[in-house]
């Protein structure tokens, strides 16, 4: 598998405080990679660096490199980077003033797509990919905010998919959901790897085991190890990893 996205010696700071330290990590194309680790280990910061969302926070900076298809993303326009690397947030954040249809098509309309047919097709495709179509197809013009929490998160996934990004970043997408809604989203993530490179941050190790081919373990801002998920959980190379997955700390 060729590498789609990689970080080289990436460090990230909030003002002077270092949140991640010299992380070098490669994400293979069309696979799901999970990043696990205890709270505060820098996994969310890392994922927010990948689409240059980190720098939106005042006084937040990075050093090191991030390459998308071999290209350094800091040399690109952040807007174009974010069109190629979509993001799903911890808390579902549909646009509350918009209908389901408008939410899903928002990114396309930003890109200047105006043809109704084109928008219709993209909305149907994205909602189906996000496994939400059957639940909302009769109420596309209803407000997105009226959906249940799990549906809202799938709506946000559909919104991210609609612009056809190459990479999808998910920052603990199920942390606010019940087990049934979580299972639906996990199934969905598993299917997404046919077309997308997925990076998912989670503090739920079972979730990583269920959806990801590769898993990276982070601790105190550093990458401890990355390996095939099964190998990492069954036979980790590092003592720290072993301690975390067996529940000795974290």
């Amino acid at each position: 598998m060729p590498t789609k996205l990689e970080t080289v010696q990436l460090s990230a700071f909030y003002a002077k405080k270092e949140a991640i330290h010299e992380v070098s990590l490669a994400f293979p194309e069309k696979t799901v990679t999970a990043i696990i680790g205890p709270s505060g280990c820098g996994k969310s910061t890392l994922i927010r660096c990948l689409n240059r969302m980190h720098e939106v926070t005042p006084k937040a900076t990075t050093t090191g490199e991030i390459r998308l298809d071999g290209e350094e993303i800091h040399a690109l326009d952040p807007v174009s980077v974010r069109r190629r690397i979509g993001m799903v947030f911890q808390k579902a954040n549909p646009f509350p003033t918009m209908s389901v249809y408008q939410n899903v098509s928002a990114g396309l309309r930003l890109n200047g797509v105006r043809h109704r047919k084109e928008l219709d097709a993209a909305v149907v495709r994205s909602l189906k990919q996000a496994a939400l179509w059957d639940e909302v197809k009769d109420n596309l013009d209803g407000p997105g905010i009226r959906l249940s929490g799990g549906q809202q998160q799938r709506l946000c996934i559909a919104r991210a998919l609609a612009v056809e990004p190459e990479v999808i970043l998910m920052d603990e997408p199920c942390s606010a959901l019940d087990p049934i809604a979580t299972a639906k989203i996990e199934d969905l993530i598993f299917d997404l790897r046919q077309n997308y490179t997925v990076v998912i941050v989670t503090h739920n190790m079972q979730q990583a085991a269920r959806v990801a081919e590769f898993t990276a373990f982070m601790y105190l801002g550093k990458l401890i190890e990355i390996d095939r998920t099964q190998k990492l959980f069954e036979n980790p190379a590092e003592k720290l990893t072993e301690g975390y997955i067996t529940g000795r700390f974290g």
Binding site: M53, V79, S80, F89, F95, L110, C156, R159, V163
Partner: peptide, 29 residues
Amino acid sequence: VPRDQREAALSLGATRWEATRLAVLRYAR
């Protein structure tokens, strides 16, 4: 307006002005 609304718009590839229009002004209207 919550920060995640701005970030939602930015993550779709909105410029700062587009994020203001799409997410912030509509939310605050």
